[in-house]
């Protein structure tokens, strides 16, 4: 059963409203996105900056509201649950944020950071909350836990902070964990620890994870399936194992080719895309990728490709008429 079902979701941000509060132009951050995540899977979302992946994460955890479409977690509409029982909603989905430095109140200890959610939700007393925080720190291998409970954020390394953020996200036993670039701030030599921790937590708790990253190797390593976003739209959904070798969409292929620069992971010529990512304020007509695509034809310029589905796989490109 799918735990998260996103259907035709839109989120537009107004650009510079006029004096009457009306906006003439919009950033099409998330522009009709659909996908579903099965219970217990790690689902990846990749794309370059401005493709809408972070907005998508914020919509799912309810930090912002979507304009149109539907996001269902365990069959319940997010906008509804948020309105009717926000506490339950918070216990359903939690997030590991991108920036392990700014995610902490610099004037509060780790103890405060970890016990607040427990005190707000668990009906726990102060002491129980602290002992629960203790367990959580042990779960993310920050030991001796007592030592870390009394530390201020700046006394911890970036990797340790990232562990605390994971512990906090887990503190309310959510069904869905949204991890927004969980390793992008880490050095290569320590990144593996957090990757392994996420894997371990996922396995032990059977938690569903939505992993958002610009780092293809991380997504490939951790996820079972991957959605590729370009300018607010999902252009391809594929099995992670197919990412480096069997992707269909020309954008995915270019991304793979650019990302593994130097390591020669992908076979064949390196694909160098022409031009820049167009502005999400006035996205191109037809297929949004056509100005940069070397296969683009007249159809691509005029008509938006209909997504083709088959076996949990999706591609939105005029090059294919069936899967």
């Amino acid at each position: 059963m799918s735990l998260l079902k996103v259907e035709d979701v839109f989120k537009l941000f107004p650009v510079r409203p006029d004096i009457f509060g009306r906006a003439k132009k919009f950033v099409h951050a998330v522009d009709g996105v659909s996908f579903s995540v099965e219970e217990g899977e790690i689902f990846g979302v990749i794309g370059e900056s401005g493709c809408g992946k972070t907005t998508l994460a914020r919509l799912i955890v309810g930090l912002i509201d979507y304009d149109r479409g539907s996001i269902k977690i365990k069959g319940e509409e997010v906008s509804e649950v948020k309105r009717l029982d926000v506490e339950r909603f918070r216990r359903t989905v939690q997030m590991v944020p991108q920036d392990p430095v700014m995610a902490f109140n610099p004037r509060k200890t780790i103890k405060h950071f970890l016990t607040r959610p427990l005190l707000l939700h668990g009906g726990l007393g102060r002491e129980e909350a602290v002992s629960r925080a203790h367990q959580l720190l042990e779960e993310v291998s920050l030991t001796p836990a007592d030592f870390f409970l009394d530390r201020y954020p700046h006394e911890l390394s970036v990797g340790q902070r990232q562990r605390v953020l994971i512990a906090r996200a887990l503190s309310l036993n959510p069904d869905l964990l949204v991890a927004d670039e969980p390793v992008s701030y880490l050095d290569v030599s320590v990144r593996g620890q957090i990757i392994n921790l996420l894997k371990e937590v996922h396995k032990k708790r059977r938690i569903t994870v939505l992993l958002i990253s610009h780092d293809l190797s991380v997504v490939y390593h951790l996820c079972s399936r991957i959605a590729v976003m370009y300018l607010g739209k999902v252009v391809e959904i594929l099995d992670a194992r197919d990412l480096f070798s069997k992707s269909l969409h020309p954008y995915t292929q270019a991304l793979v080719s650019s990302f593994s620069v130097g390591f020669g992971i992908s076979r064949g010529e390196r694909i160098v895309l022409k031009g820049e990512v167009p502005s999400p304020i006035e996205p191109p007509s037809g297929c949004r990728f056509h100005p940069r695509c070397s296969f683009a034809t007249d159809v691509c310029r005029k008509l938006e490709p209909k997504p083709l589905f088959s076996d949990g796989r999706l591609v939105a490109c005029h090059l294919y008429d069936r899967l």
Partner: peptide
């Protein structure tokens, strides 16, 4: 990290 099914090294 480019290998699946094995722990990441660090």
């Amino acid at each position: 990290v480019y290998e699946k099914d094995r722990p990441a090294k660090f």
